[in-house]
Design a protein around this nucleic acid. Structure first.
Lengths: 345, 345
DNA sequence: CTGTTAGCGCCTTCAT
DNA sequence: ATGAAGGCGCTAACAG
């Protein structure tokens, strides 16, 4: 029963037991708040534990109880407010549920599937972004052994999913732009790059149909600033006619606005530009950007929640979870400045 | 020797051993690349492991080898690019070193010390932000039992620290503004809110001294947008004379610029405004913001690196690590637009 | 109510 | 080179 050494702070359950003059079983009992324990020993244990600042070694406990009290989260990367918000929501809820979160960023990992499998080795469940480039085969394999929830991917029923609404909002947004009298709208972003963009494009299409119009082909570029700038140059050069750009995200919209204006094009007078995400810059740029706000934080929280339910084998709840988004109308779409008040943060 | 159940994917070292027709010792050996093993058994084991997609259960391994192969990171929160960048740098380097990262956000935790202690229970070392509000007593206590590195706190020698340079850059920045002929500079931010702001203020002071000037008292407000806006209102109302605002961060600078201009004050003509961090918006706002860029990502990477060295008991390396920053001159300080090219991202 | 005793899955001497 | 066996720290029956 001799103990040894390297615990988080050196003290083990044996130290405490010894100090309290009881068996390790008793220590374990009071610390787990389990079975009845005499008030006397309870106190002695508590005192000893306190004095020694004892905290059970996670690994040992995990091995014994056969779960980790930790959730895994894999995100593509962390630039921009989107993933950060998501992460905050996830961490916060996970913490509330008593779960640690071990994070993994897909970017830069050469062997993602292996990395994910390794991650799975130390958590009770995994949440990952649909866009994190995890092979479907890996997902299903994982799903077979422990709970998995997919975030912002395609809603489906074989695996838990939590996503934010895209199509409907995109249709609403597009209709709004059409309502300003614009007729040569272009969707900016590649629908094939992921379910989000695809659905937004679907909404774009739907709005056109509803108005008896036919939409032009999407301008398939990446969601990065550089591509937006390049596209602006194309427009400035005159080889692309349009009076409204519906962008798949704000970064693109922002880059477009900036470059277009530098090139002498008036926004929104000559061409309206709207985005998606409501990043901070959207409020600061001139003209202020009309965009769509997603409850990203909530998304993350829901993912953690859902995951936890699965892990604890709780009630299965409903199927795919989709969280509503809402339009943030400012002036880049053609609305008069100050036309609508900026919603509170 | 019967095995049981819930491993990450069900398979244990026993499964593999059985499948390969060897003892678990052999399996362990080849998987650890340890002692000599006959080429034949090595192959059999490798094959079996591969077929079963075996990955050792982290908890079991941890318990046996007495370390977790994981780094802990505690950040205040995650809004803005600063912490995200830091986290990316940290995660990336940690992953390269084969370490998982378990993240904890201080915001919202009611009992931080306890939470941190619990976190310490599942990692080999801890990195935390100086501003994460962890009581000094907790830090030293932790430090006693396992490696700790402090990020962006006060450089010190009893605990490892990695910080980015503040004072010198702040002096340089302030001198630059003075060089534009401004004479009524005000520092915006509370030097007592943390070492970063304190050091930047020190640089502000130093620049004044060097110019034979005496600096005004700092305008002690929080680093948040709302406070910046409020301050702008004060200035607009005329009860605060100044021709240049040296802000402790970009968020403040941005809010000030926006509101000041809305109020009819010309920036930089009437009052110059400079910030700190070089957030994305800094490039988009009109006028483009002069600010200071910190190699935040590198900061995070260095923290992970340092931590790992300590954990593996490697060479102790030098003392406090401070990473240089650099000025990003744009036009809000009074420089002519396009005066200096925007450095590449 | 409390102590004793198996494991949890894996690593690592220690023999062989 | 390989197998047997003990132990890592903790939990959970199982006897008292």
């Amino acid at each position: 029963m001799a103990t040894g050494a390297t615990q988080s702070n050196g003290t083990t359950i044996y130290s405490v037991a010894e100090r309290a003059g009881v068996s390790i079983a008793s220590v374990s009992r009071v610390l787990q708040g389990s079975t009845a324990v005499s008030e006397k020993t309870r106190k002695r244990v508590l005192d000893a534990a306190e004095e020694l600042k004892y905290v059970p070694l996670a690994a040992a406990r995990s091995l014994a109880v056969r779960h980790h009290e930790a959730h895994g989260l894999v995100l593509p990367e962390l630039s921009g407010p989107y993933y950060s918000e998501l992460l905050m929501g996830f961490e916060s809820r996970a913490a509330d549920l008593g779960q640690s979160v071990v994070l993994m960023l897909a970017e830069g990992k050469d062997n993602l599937p292996a990395a994910v499998r390794k991650l799975a080795t130390r958590v009770d469940g995994l949440a990952m972004l649909g866009s994190a480039a995890i092979p479907e085969s890996t997902v299903t394999a994982l799903h077979g052994s422990k709970p998995v929830v997919l975030i912002a991917g395609d809603p489906r029923t074989d695996v838990d999913t939590v996503t934010s609404e895209n199509t409907h909002s995109a249709e609403e947004l597009t209709s709004h732009v059409l309502g300003h009298g614009r007729r040569t709208l272009r969707f900016v972003g590649d629908p094939d790059s992921g379910p989000d963009v695809r659905d937004r494009y679907a909404g774009f299409l739907a709005a056109h149909s509803a108005a008896g119009l036919t939409a032009a082909e999407p301008l398939r570029i990446s969601l990065r600033e550089a591509d937006g700038t390049a596209l602006a140059d194309r427009i400035l050069s005159g080889d692309l006619a349009t009076d409204a750009l519906v962008c798949a995200n704000d970064e693109l919209a922002l880059a477009l606005i900036k470059r277009l204006r530098e090139g002498g094009t008036r926004v929104p007078d000559d061409v309206a530009v709207v985005g998606w995400d409501d990043v901070m810059t959207a409020r600061y740029i001139e003209p202020a950007l009309t965009t769509v706000r997603q409850p990203v934080r909530e998304l993350g929280a829901q993912a953690a929640e859902r995951l936890h339910q699965r892990v604890t084998g709780g009630s299965v709840e409903a199927g795919p979870l989709v969280i509503p988004t809402h339009l943030v109308l400012r002036s880049s779409c053609g609305c008069a400045p100050g036309h609508r008040p900026d919603p509170p943060d």
